[in-house]
Nucleic acid binder design. Structure first.
Lengths: 238, 238
DNA sequence: TGGAATTAGTGAACGGTGTTCACTAAATGA
DNA sequence: TCATTTAGTGAACACCGTTCACTAATTCCA
């Protein structure tokens, strides 16, 4: 299929036709990104997308097999950004604890920056019927962006154990899963319950979002330490 | 409106007509619950519901203002169960740490028992445009089931501080929010990523779901302690 | 350059969705 | 018994994702 010049594998200038095709494709994705960022899946319809780029609805199906396929691409590119964010944060020259906090904060901040993307990426509920324990293999997960981000966390746990601040008896993979779950929970609660860090009986109990993220990061860090460094994981009196 | 006998406020035997009405209403809710539990929002359509109870689609609108209203009722009654679950767990006669673990485990277990309900209850993404910091007040939250469950957690933190096992310098409300976020994250990751506790590079690193929940609960408990009781928060070597 | 073959793009349709509304028929209240 | 309220309906509206025969433009090759 398409036995064109098979040497140029992914060059930007393939052919005028191909470039035009990519331009239209991008314009679809751009429009989709624009709408989805603002209104989420509810506001994103093929017809509206077609309207926005002045094509007929059917045209979109020459570029994407289905709406889901298009959406997957949006989510995927978001997760790539999320991954690189946490990856970069883990490579800074900061001292260990600050680096961990940075990773945590960047992850959550990036997630709530595009709430629809993050929420949609964890929205499908697989049916619990069949025995699908085996159908998710490690290789598959490891190569995904989620998997890469997860490995960054594993690396941080290992590093903490090597320098003696984290308890060495934790399995770094299992500990990383706990950390990830915690980050995930904070991100989603911030997304779905606006004012979650603020909502408290007396106003002075409230924290702003950034402060709450830091508080939670401190708690998480503390939970892995051999002995809690300082009893106050920052900012819990403001 | 409806100036009927205004003394009998909520008695089960109101009138034959009223009872018939409630029966039909329940049959709608039952069918909805049945379908929703199995297939979630995707499988639940007004027309299918009408089909299932042998009425016309329009009939349902004599009982519920909209599909969302119907769905809200499903979610609400689920959250009532979830609330009572955690409430009961917090009132057992177990020693403190076991009680905390029990609350945590029951919450997550109940959540993943009905994954569609739990996930749907946290699915709306409010638009981040306006300044709606003030539109969520504490009273409103406190009287909701979420709020009640939250207060149980606050109570546990306070108890831990009073008996001296939790660091007293934590604000119990903020700490409870962190705990809640963590529980939430574990529940949702278990829902959306089947095999999440298992997925690891070598098979012997994996935990089953219950074991992972316990591990995470241990970590959380540890994070609030004045000093980590024991370096192994249970089951992390399996 | 001319003709064949591929491709981009379209309009109309299909089956689905939530919701409304004028309408009938039955139950209720006086 | 008769007026009034109510339960329930069928048809329609405006959307949705998707398909398909079709045209028009482009590309390829002789």
């Amino acid at each position: 299929m398409k036995g064109a010049p098979l040497d140029t594998d992914n060059l930007p200038e393939e052919s005028p036709a191909e470039r035009r095709r990519q331009r239209v494709r991008s314009s679809i994705l751009d429009a989709a990104e624009r709408v989805f960022s603002k209104e989420g899946e509810a506001g994103l319809s093929i017809r509206r997308l077609a309207d926005e780029i002045d094509y007929s609805p059917a045209a979109i199906y020459k570029y994407f097999g289905s709406k889901d396929e298009l959406l997957d691409e949006l989510k995927e590119s978001f997760f790539e950004r999320l991954m690189s964010t946490i990856d970069k944060a883990s490579l800074t020259a900061l001292p260990f604890e600050a680096r961990v906090r940075q990773c945590f904060a960047r992850y959550v901040e990036t997630a709530i920056e595009r709430p629809h993307h993050y929420a949609a990426a964890f929205s499908s509920v697989p049916d619990t019927s069949a025995a699908h324990l085996a159908d998710i293999c490690w290789e598959e997960f490891e190569t995904s962006h989620k998997g890469q981000a997860f490995m960054v966390v594993v690396g941080l746990v290992r590093e903490g154990q090597e320098i003696g601040v984290f308890d060495a008896s934790f399995d770094p993979f299992i500990a990383a899963k706990s950390l990830w779950a915690s980050m995930h929970g904070v991100a989603l609660l911030l997304i779905h319950l606006p004012g979650f860090p603020v909502i408290l009986p007396t106003p002075d109990h409230g924290l702003n979002t950034a402060a709450f993220i830091q508080f939670h990061a401190g708690l998480l860090f503390r939970s892995l330490c051999v002995a809690p460094s300082s009893p106050e994981p920052s900012g819990h009196t403001l």
